[in-house]
């Protein structure tokens, strides 16, 4: 079997196990789900029984589980308790703002992280390196919601350079920076260490012996070998972000998947929570898969490796 077919088939059991965990965990929510579905309004036993039957909650748990798996597999996430809308449609409506923010954050993170990482990696212990690495060390301790608020305060409220609300592209600037700063630190560290390690390899010496320019040696011969760890980090962060930048959306009052998840938890809208977590984890697994396929493109040795 070609390597990519093997990889694609490999995620099926992972998806299955993940969905099973989500289903299992949500079974543990205390209280009668029918009561939650009715939003706590008092109802007669008859109404409750009808509702229970309608939601399939009168069936034994294993039947509910099989129904759940079947529905997940065809993308039917049920209806939300509070809105009565199909969860899949509710999610679809929020994908765009979250995706925009994810891409914005990724862009800032890549620009900053790649530039600093390469500068630091080519001159370890130089001043750019020292500054970047100590900032990154302090940066991991910074609460991102605090940074977001400080950005709003300084650039939105005091200097009034950027709007802090709205859905235009300029309202994306500060939240993207908030996410980007957070990404850039980790990215720069990874690029730096991968580059330092790669630059000592024999094939770099060969490249120099061919009379190639320093730019060509780094950009062509070193980067392609050093790029897998940074791609992995970016891919996984992106996977988390498209499920909604929970914190950043809250700070900047953006209506994305992250804020939807919080609201769903606070209102105990179980199908919506379930749908969002299934969507997020599935996206995470699929992006992981895409990353592995990408490694195969970047590095031919991975393609030909036997399972």
């Amino acid at each position: 079997m070609p390597w990519f077919v093997r990889r694609v088939l490999g995620i099926v059991p992972t998806l299955f196990l993940t969905w099973t965990i989500v289903f299992g965990v949500l079974q543990l929510i205390p209280g009668d789900p029918v009561m939650l579905a009715l939003g706590g309004t008092p109802a007669s036993d008859e109404v409750l029984d009808n509702e229970r039957r309608r939601l399939g909650l009168d069936q034994p748990v294993y039947i509910q589980y099989l129904t759940f798996l079947k529905k997940m597999a065809i993308g039917d996430l049920g209806n939300g308790y509070s809105s009565k809308q199909p969860v899949s449609e509710m999610i679809a409506a929020r994908v765009r703002p979250s995706l925009e923010l994810a891409l914005g954050g990724l862009l800032v993170g890549i620009l900053l992280g790649v530039a600093l990482g390469i500068a630091a990696g080519l001159r370890p212990h130089g001043w750019i390196d020292t500054m970047t690495m100590s900032t990154a060390l302090v940066g991991v301790s910074l609460p991102s919601f605090w940074i977001g608020m400080l950005l709003i305060y300084v650039f939105g409220l005091q200097l009034e350079w950027v709007p802090i609300l709205g859905d235009g592209i300029d309202a994306l600037i500060l939240p993207s920076i908030t996410i980007g700063l957070f990404l850039a630190g980790g990215l720069a560290r990874l690029i730096r260490s991968a580059l330092i390690e790669t630059m000592t390899q024999d094939y770099i010496r060969t490249a120099h012996s061919k009379g190639l320019s320093a730019v060509r040696v780094v950009a062509k011969h070193a980067m392609r070998n050093a790029i897998i760890p940074p791609i992995t980090l970016l891919g996984l962060q992106f996977a988390v972000l498209i499920g909604g930048a929970v914190v950043t959306e809250r700070v900047f009052a953006r209506a994305g998947l992250g804020s939807m998840l919080i609201d769903a938890v606070l209102t105990k809208d179980i199908p919506l929570v379930q749908g969002l977590v299934v969507y997020t984890t599935t996206a995470y697994i699929v992006i992981n898969l895409l990353l592995e396929l990408l490694y195969g493109i970047v590095d031919p040795r991975i393609r030909s490796r036997r399972a």
């Binding site: 390899q201 024999d202 094939y203 010496r205 060969t206 490249a207 011969h221 392609r224 070998n225 970047v298 590095d299 031919p300 040795r301």
Partner: peptide, 13 residues
């Protein structure tokens, strides 16, 4: 040409 043929070529090209 170098002593280490196994590592002197770039593995990804």
């Amino acid at each position: 040409i170098f002593q280490e043929p196994m590592t002197s070529l770039n593995p990804v090209y």
